[in-house]
Amino acid sequence: MRILIVDDSKAMQVIVQRSLVKLNIPNLEIKFAFNGTEGLDLARSWEPELVISDWHMPEMSGLELLDALNREMLGIRVGFVTTETSPERKSEALQKEAAFVINKPFDSQTFISVLAPLIEMMVQTKLKATEQALEQPMESAQPSRIKLPLASSIQKTLTALSQQSVSVLQRPTEALSEHWLPAVVGLFVDHQSKVVRGICVIDLEATSILGGILTGLAQNSINQYIGDRNVPKKIVGSLERVFEVLSATLTDTVHHRDLEFKSMTSINTDMARLEALLSRGNTHRMDIEISVANYGQGKMILIGS
């Protein structure tokens, strides 16, 4: 989850950052801005899911930042951590759909009690949107609109991301089995239309290996998760980074640009659903074997429409 902290105090930026880390948010990314103007520019380019802002700042206040984000309809939630205590001003912010207002100074428990349910609600909303997108057909006027990458391109991308020597081989298409589950599914969309044009499915072994490496787990822990067939949320969440870099390898040949990673979900036990997902019309498929020395191997499937 991408969170932008906007505050003209470096010390307060650090305090808010430390409080966020205590929430154990999967795949947390944090960036900083020192005033509303910087925050607005960064929100436009980086597209965070949540902005935590001070109220009183030079150049552009936190309330002015909220107004600007609302005008541009970027769909970004905004909350305040502020010394502003006026009930009228706080009411104004909430009427403008601020997610919360926390007064400075605050303790860790207060911060967690406000942010934890909000973060959980945002995660569930995103998951529901992904589930709905999976039920929609992949639209395509041409079966070969999306150009799938070479195995060598995927290998280079995953090696750079993981800082490990990753081997990637394209394999013949094969029937799925229960051994794939639980699987992680990533959705990729056209940047302009937001229509789903690509799907990536990663099996249990590849999820454990790639996610385990990205979260710094030892080999024996990764092997244990594979043996238990139960992968922690933190490892699954880290695969967002895998999908984000893979999006740069999926090319829309009509608009001549890369696809954009939208969201991800897990398919834990529903084999029929996974099979239906991979058998959609007007698509082409690439089956891949991923291996890392001393960690094992797993499988991935890419689909383009």
Rank of each mutant, 00 (worst) to 15 (best):
I3F: 11
D8A: 09
Q13W: 01
I15M: 08
S19C: 09
L20Q: 09
L23D: 10
I25W: 03
K31H: 11
T37R: 14
S53N: 08
M57T: 09
P58Q: 03
E59W: 07
G62R: 14
G62A: 13
L63A: 14
E64G: 04
D67C: 05
D67E: 13
L74C: 09
I76N: 01
R77Y: 12
R77W: 12
T82L: 07
T82C: 06
T85W: 00
P87L: 04
E88H: 04
K90Y: 01
L94C: 08
Q95M: 14
Q95I: 06
K96M: 02
E97A: 08
A98D: 00
A98Q: 02
V101F: 06
P105W: 10
D107L: 04
T110H: 06
L115E: 01
L115C: 12
L115S: 02
L118A: 11
M121H: 15
V123P: 00
K126D: 09
K126S: 13
L127K: 13
T130G: 14
S140F: 09
P143D: 09
L148K: 12
L161D: 15
E174G: 08
S177V: 10
S177D: 09
E178F: 14
L181A: 11
V185G: 01
V185H: 10
L187R: 05
F188H: 04
V189R: 03
H191C: 00
Q192D: 11
Q192G: 00
R197F: 14
I199N: 01
I199T: 13
C200G: 05
C200H: 00
D203V: 03
S208Q: 02
I209R: 00
G211E: 02
L214R: 07
L214S: 05
T215F: 01
N223D: 12
N223W: 07
G227R: 01
V231A: 00
V236N: 03
V245I: 12
V245S: 02
L246M: 03
T249Y: 02
D252W: 00
T253K: 00
D258V: 07
L259C: 03
L259N: 02
E260F: 06
F261N: 05
T265S: 14
S266G: 03
R273W: 03
L274A: 06
V292G: 07
G296V: 11
S305P: 09
S305C: 08
